[in-house]
Simulated scan of single mutants.
Amino acid sequence: MAKRWEECTEEDILQANIEKYDSEHIVNFYKDFEEPRYSYIEYNVIFKAVTDMLEKTLDHSLRAVDLCGGAGKAAFVLKSCAPECKVTLVDLSEKMLAIAREMIAKNNIQEIDVVQADAFSFLDSEGEYDLIVFSSAIHHFKEPLGLLKSAADRLSENGVIITIADPTTITKSRRYQFFRFLAAGSEHKKQMIKQMFSPNSGANNADFDMAEYQTYTGIDDRELARGVRDIGLSPLLHLRYPAGEPYMVKIMPYLGLCWAFSLVLGKSENRVPAAVVDKLKQDIRREMPFRFKYI
């Protein structure tokens, strides 16, 4: 009998991710993926602002980890924002990493190490990093705070963690679901209607994908931002923004649909000056081409 959402363990979710990201249709999607529709401009804007801030405090090349990085989306953006950065790409799927290696070879990208490991195993090993990135990753874990605590233990003195492109609870609101339906193509609309009227549509776990664990409810990002203080981290930035096709991100903020969030977290013991945080916010606001909001 399948487990209910609340009964799943971190081990269950890990196994679900192994199976999902080794499946043929997922692998083929990432093989063909060349950003045909989604620009993810927030990656470039946020990563550039944060790496510029960090590089001013370091006497060595920036050491970064793209953790649970899949085929390397965040790792490649990091290299474009900070070319001298030494990046380690970590993921548990060898098939995803194989795609990343192909891209590295194709584009002759230097100083990206590729490591096959799950997040906790990697974070249990030795090593110190100035920047740890979770790109659309923390929703794959039952206890994101435990993950962030393990990551905090691997940070250098002035290091930071970035979480980016994870869903808030807004994704479960009726207005989001209605807008999603309006924006969907005809085939997707048919699938959504079919699911709506299927015999299992009223079941609690009807749309539950164990591998994408937190997307079942969405993440309460305010609660998460409060919780990180108990594990020795301090939010430097907390922002909500729209994500998706370019025309959608222009409309969504006016409908209250800044449904994705990003956190930039530093060690509480190493308080970043307010002037530095203010500049970070200004840099991001100046470069972001669509409306978003700081929390």
Rank of each mutant, 00 (worst) to 15 (best):
Lys142Asp: 09
Cys81Glu: 00
Glu7Trp: 06
Asp66Cys: 06
Ala211Gln: 13
Phe141Cys: 10
Glu6Tyr: 15
Phe76Gly: 03
Glu34Val: 12
Asp22Met: 05
Ile295Met: 10
Leu255Lys: 13
Pro273Lys: 08
Glu19Asn: 15
Glu34Cys: 09
Ala165Pro: 01
Met192Arg: 14
Leu145Asn: 07
Ile132Cys: 05
Leu182Met: 12
Ile161Gln: 07
Met53Ile: 13
Tyr241Cys: 03
Arg101Lys: 12
Ala243Ser: 13
Asp32Gly: 12
Leu78Pro: 00
Asp91Ala: 02
Asn17Trp: 04
Ile295Phe: 09
Ala137His: 10
Arg226Phe: 10
Asn205Cys: 08
Glu128His: 14
Tyr213Thr: 06
Ala211Asp: 09
Asn158Lys: 13
Ala225Pro: 04
Leu67Cys: 10
Leu155Pro: 02
Thr169Arg: 11
Arg222Asn: 06
Thr57Trp: 09
Ile295Tyr: 11
Ala275Ile: 15
Glu212Leu: 14
Ala49Cys: 11
Phe261Arg: 05
Leu89Asn: 03
Met1Ile: 13
Tyr30Leu: 01
Cys8Pro: 01
Tyr216Trp: 14
Ile41Phe: 13
Arg285Ala: 12
Ala98Gly: 10
Ser80Cys: 00
Ala225Phe: 07
Ser198Asp: 05
Glu24Pro: 04
Lys20Tyr: 07
Val264Gly: 02
Gln214His: 08
Ala225Cys: 07
Glu157Val: 07
Pro253Arg: 07
Lys172Gly: 13
Thr88Arg: 08
Gln195Gly: 11
Glu212His: 15
Ile219Met: 13
Trp5Leu: 02
Asp12Cys: 06
Ser173Phe: 01
Asn28Pro: 01
Leu62Phe: 10
Met192Pro: 03
Ala243Gln: 12
Pro273Gln: 07
Lys190Gln: 13
Val272His: 05
Ser156Thr: 12
Phe141Val: 12
Leu97Gln: 02
Ala183Tyr: 03
Met248Leu: 14
Arg240Ser: 09
Ala82Ile: 03
Lys86Thr: 04
Ala71Val: 01
Cys8Trp: 03
Ser136Cys: 11
Cys8Arg: 08
Trp259Met: 06
Ala117Gly: 03
Arg229Cys: 13
Ala275Cys: 14
Ile164Ser: 02
Arg285Phe: 12
Lys142His: 12
Pro167Ile: 00
Lys31Val: 01
Gly244Cys: 08
Phe178Glu: 04
Val50Glu: 04
Asp283Leu: 15
Ala211Tyr: 06
Phe29Trp: 10
Asn107Lys: 15
Ser186Lys: 06
Gly202Thr: 02
Lys3Gln: 04
Arg175Ser: 04
Lys48Pro: 01
Ile13Leu: 11
Met96Arg: 04
Asp283Thr: 11
Leu92Val: 12
Glu94Met: 00
Trp259Ile: 11
Lys293Thr: 06
Gly244Tyr: 07
Glu6Val: 13
Met210Leu: 06
Thr215Asp: 15
Ile251His: 09
Lys172Ile: 02
Lys281Gly: 13
Ala183Ser: 10
Thr168Met: 03
Leu155Cys: 05
Pro144Ile: 12
Ile104Thr: 05
Ile99Thr: 09
Phe181Ser: 03
Ile109Glu: 07
Asp278Leu: 14
Ser39Asn: 12
Asp32Leu: 09
Ser262Met: 05
Met192Gln: 14
Gly244Pro: 05
Thr163Pro: 00
Ala225His: 09
Tyr129Ile: 04
Leu237Asn: 05
Gly159Pro: 00
